[in-house]
Design a protein around this nucleic acid. Structure first.
Lengths: 194, 194
DNA sequence: GATTAGCTAGAACGTTCTATCAAATGCTGA
DNA sequence: TCAGCATTTGATAGAACGTTCTAGCTAATC
């Protein structure tokens, strides 16, 4: 009962934040999207919108963090995995008609200067994501500094490509960005193999 | 008189949108930041918040568009110009304690699915920016498709790096991303020179 | 059966939002 | 100096916001 309602609220928040941002999404809209009674929001999240948003960020972070193993585990190498991740993201974006990208970036830009606990929550998710990617690139033989730089760039490039793709309603942006990241990883791997 | 007030309002909107986003910024806050009487907002922008936001986006687009000649005109080559642009951006971000990045991305993520005229305005600015960069990379001898891909990636990478840098309050992200873009442009130039 | 805890349900509250409006003030040109 | 236009001024209205509150229902436990 309750657990299902709570999860539905988090998921609805995630969807709406990514489509219309944090401040542009009201609690009543989240309740409606979750098909939950309005009072249940504060029952499950007594800390209010901030607490719900923190949970949304952490939950989204787990989903995005799981994308690394999904693309990197079976790939011939990390350059190909990188490209596949971007292609997968482009496909997902097309499938939802550019409505859904990443709720974390949307929230991050709004709260970075105004809500310290939420800024920290977004920073933590990004750091975790970068950490997972860095490990993969290191595991492929790249020096820690190079691996870290590529990981940071992967996340930056993908989040930025989402912005452009959503603005222009064109997923080719994400694929183009993926090609550049593919070549960057490819070049780093080749250089490390010398 | 009036022209100065109008410009102050646009500038205040730009600053506040980049710090707290579109929906999180109220018109009274803009008026206060602009030191303008509240009613003047609707006098100058009878279309309301949407009209003001459109003007903010276009004005910011002009500022950002001017960054391309600023970094590319005097640089030894486009790879170095690319790196310098990212370093300049990192510096700017540090100077304002991570408060001010780009108002266009902040607005774009909020309006992409909910406000078509503003989505188009953001798309237009990004397209113009990408166009300017593409011309620079083409002018350096790169094939049109490669130039376009690098330009798209430049803008994506920079906007994404802003997200991460603001979330983590660490401008090193922007510099790392700039190194990857530098190497990508370098490699493309070297390949085109063969 | 009585009690308790969890969840649902939605009204009410105070605040903030966007937009409108009428009046006042200032500036310019005839 | 005066009229007309531009700009300023700030109160007001209605809607939406996040939060709180009360009441009711259900299931589990004693």
């Amino acid at each position: 009962m309750g657990a299902a309602t709570r999860e539905r609220i988090i998921e609805a928040g995630s969807i709406l934040f990514r489509r219309q941002g944090y401040a542009g999404t009201g609690m009543k809209a989240i309740a409606a999207a979750a098909q939950a009674p309005f009072g249940s929001i504060y029952h499950f999240f007594p800390g209010g919108k901030d607490e719900l948003t923190g949970e949304v960020i952490r939950a989204a972070g787990r989903v995005y963090g799981a994308l690394v193993p999904r693309f990197f585990d079976g790939a011939p190498d990390t350059a190909v995995a990188t490209r596949c991740a971007f292609r997968g993201a482009a496909e997902t974006l097309r499938d939802c008609n550019y409505a859904d990208a990443c709720p974390i970036a949307a929230v991050a830009l709004e709260v970075a200067s105004t809500n310290e606990p939420l800024r920290l929550a977004t920073a933590e998710v990004f750091a975790h994501w970068v950490g997972g990617l860095t490990a993969r690139y290191e595991g492929a033989g790249l020096a820690p500094a190079v691996a870290h730089r590529l990981a940071v760039s992967f996340v930056s490039m993908l989040e930025g490509a989402f912005v452009l793709a959503r603005a222009s309603k064109n997923a080719q942006v994400v694929e183009d960005a993926g090609e550049i990241m593919f070549e960057a990883v490819r070049a780093a791997l080749d250089k490390a193999a010398e």
